[in-house]
Design a protein around this nucleic acid. Sequence first.
DNA 1: CTGTTAGCGCCTTCAC
DNA 2: GTGAAGGCGCTAACAG
Lengths: 337, 337
Amino acid sequence: MPTIYDVAKLAGVAPATVSRVLNASGYVSEETRRRVLAAIDALEYVPNRLARGLRSKQTHTISLVVTDITNPFWTTVARGVEDAASKAGFSVILCNTDESVEKQAHYVELLLQKQVDGFLLVPATQDVTSISLIRERDVPLVVLDREVPVAVDTVRCDSEGGAYDLTRHLLGLGHRRIAVLGGSEDVPTAQARVAGYRRAMDEAGVPIDSELILGQAFTQEAGHAMTQMVLGLDQRPTALFAVNNFIAMGAVRALRDAGLDVPGDVALVGFDDLPEALVMEPWLTVAAQPAYEMGRKASELLISRISNSSDSPPSETVLPTTLIVRQSSGPLRVRSQ
Amino acid sequence: MPTIYDVAKLAGVAPATVSRVLNASGYVSEETRRRVLAAIDALEYVPNRLARGLRSKQTHTISLVVTDITNPFWTTVARGVEDAASKAGFSVILCNTDESVEKQAHYVELLLQKQVDGFLLVPATQDVTSISLIRERDVPLVVLDREVPVAVDTVRCDSEGGAYDLTRHLLGLGHRRIAVLGGSEDVPTAQARVAGYRRAMDEAGVPIDSELILGQAFTQEAGHAMTQMVLGLDQRPTALFAVNNFIAMGAVRALRDAGLDVPGDVALVGFDDLPEALVMEPWLTVAAQPAYEMGRKASELLISRISNSSDSPPSETVLPTTLIVRQSSGPLRVRSQ
DNA sequence: CTGTTAGCGCCTTCAC
DNA sequence: GTGAAGGCGCTAACAG
């Protein structure tokens, strides 16, 4: 494997000059530049980034740590991150924590060892051990999607507002018994979505039945189980609000299993839209989050933090959600139950 | 940022000893081991992997280069890769080429610079420039999913067989005019799926109408366009075979737009199943590929190549697909057209 | 505009 | 069982 010395020798210059050509830093005459480039070509020289990073203390690499790479929402975010990063000459290491703090801690440690220049992190829980570790080492960090009890740059969507809109929509259709199929109760986005629901209900003067507010996990299985649970109540809800896309899928299946028609028997709304390429027929009323935008913005913010290590105070970017009304949320049907 | 020297000083030992503790190499007395560990803890020491990799020429990192991170098929593969890798103490860098050779070349170059220990690559095209580059540098490589015109370790699914099964299934239902909605024509899996179709048709003695064999791209848009095209033919097909999941989604939408019932008016089958969490109601007849398994096997193979640099000849692993019959493929309906 | 020198943090080799 | 020395490949700082 040729090194910068081999290139230098072949081109008849000093290693430092080769380095200058490689990094377009400092002045190099057009003539020597050409010679160096020719030597690089001839030897099929590939610079060693480990050595470069060790010396320059910059890897031009950022990391994106998400909670579920299987969810199209996160892969869309990843695309936004990647596009913005590569435009700025940064590469992205993508890691998946499966909503587990242990895996998160493991990856943060590993990425710190790999000397990434910055972190884009979706915190698995409210535990801030990893976040503190990152900040102690003065590595720039932008928290994505979920609030944490620490002052830190954040980019997220307006979960509370989206939930409020969805609930208002259902209330407007005449629904009063609206169940919330929540995510993990210690995840802020899940909490915020319940809060938005509460605000809409309170404003409308509709009493809240705590039996109708559940919270388990952001999975299809949980959506299925929670739906079965609320369907089993004495006074069954007339509408369901699933706080993410996977939960909504579970709800659809449970409603089907129970032989119920949507929206005829029960209305259903969800958070997060699914990409067109994945759905047979868009049919679910949702509060859609600008996933790509979120990734792009976060990536740009992180890179600006890395570049101008100005100590401006932590910022909080909140992107609006969009209410998309489709067939799954029909008006309340009066029944003689 | 503390280094191994700081740890050594605090523990009252030499840097080499700290290194031995860190890497569990060589003999260290229990007593000094404890002291070193305590010092590491006290300083919150984080080893620098760049330095380690530079010295040891091993990064314990492999790369996975896929063509579309947005497709659940690939994220499922990625999970298999990741699980097997982390079990063996390797981390994974995931990159997305968008089916572009340029992006692929870019990432391969970058990963080579980052000194990854091995490559898991889904080739964007039949162009072998990147593959040659990897092999010249003696970096282990396993090609995923798609055959290439080079002798190299390969792990893929039986595309030909899966397509054969699907076509036989349609023939068995009485269909004779079966259209193929293909992917990029220069991608081997797309070709193999057409080949499986041809074999089944030939065996059944059904003449093949080349008008019914299309090939564009693995996207929903392409599926939509190709479906519209075949529906516009004088003699419209009675069944469609979509060679991947996104194309199938496009077909579903085009059929709906045309006011056609599936399977009443047109039968539809596809390649690749979608995860349960993403589909409202499983309904499409498919040849399902064992995505997770594929990732796991490939990862294990690559890591074994890295570890025992034995020069055993390139292997080819072909995993079977599973035919899952659902509602989208009904029997041919006799019509007075 | 180009060369020389030094050292990033670690692991390997060789002593002891 | 442990320490000292050297160098992995590169770039920053300083000459000239």
